[in-house]
Design a protein around this nucleic acid. Sequence first.
DNA 1: AAGATGAACAACCGCGAGGAC
DNA 2: TGTCCTCGCGGTTGTTCATCT
Length: 249
Amino acid sequence: MGRQPCCDKVGLKKGPWTSDEDKKLINFILTNGQCCWRAVPKLAGLLRCGKSCRLRWTNYLRPDLKRGLLSDYEEKMVIDLHSQLGNRWSKIASHLPGRTDNEIKNHWNTHIKKKLKKMGIDPLTHKSISPVPAVNNDDHHPQEEEEKKEKEVEEIFDQILQIDENNNGFCTDEVPMIEPHEIQVVVPAPAPVPSYSCSSSQSDSSLLDNLELPSFEWLQGDEFLSNYDIMDFWDDDFTSGLDLLINDV
DNA sequence: AAGATGAACAACCGCGAGGAC
DNA sequence: TGTCCTCGCGGTTGTTCATCT
């Protein structure tokens, strides 16, 4: 027996979401919370598959999403985390509040990859691409070389940030960024809440703990609704639209 | 001004993991 | 224990917009 499709595709809409569809989805989730995604489209009156709804919500409609390009700090975090975790975008994203795995993945593919290549770094291995001079086997000290390379890469990361600061090359300042003090991460009551922090493997979590990265948590149900008005990640147009929507609810 | 090209990002697809039965 | 279902992840594609010729 083959795998069943995630949804019955007959009659389902694909492609870009309309504002009306967005409203329906937001309306439903604000009212009912995040439940079984498969049932969401039916209950919300959407001609989409549940998967599409989940993606739209997590990647675009979530109230705590940041907008705009990644800041220098975020970019460096992505590079650092990628060097440790590889293409595990969701894990990387879990340490960048307000950023989605999709957003980070896109940013990596369109910005960071190019930037690293330009700097002579292999984006896959985070090692220098520049040809390594022939080494006499007798004098070969792999560990030292490894450390040396890591140091080089670290220096190059700093150079990248320097370039950005000098506005010479790729610039993340062209779009107004949300400053750290503007970010409101609502911390729920002490009750245990599912956390987005990394928990996949021992090595991963201990490694990330060492980085002392901020973790990020979601509100649930009523807590989520009651805190909606203090989240200021959305732009004015969208939040004003949302106000109308909430009033409707 | 119009078409070509490339960049950026939203959305889709297929697969695997994990839980329920 | 095996099967089915749901969810989430990562890779890929499609669409839109900006820039260039």
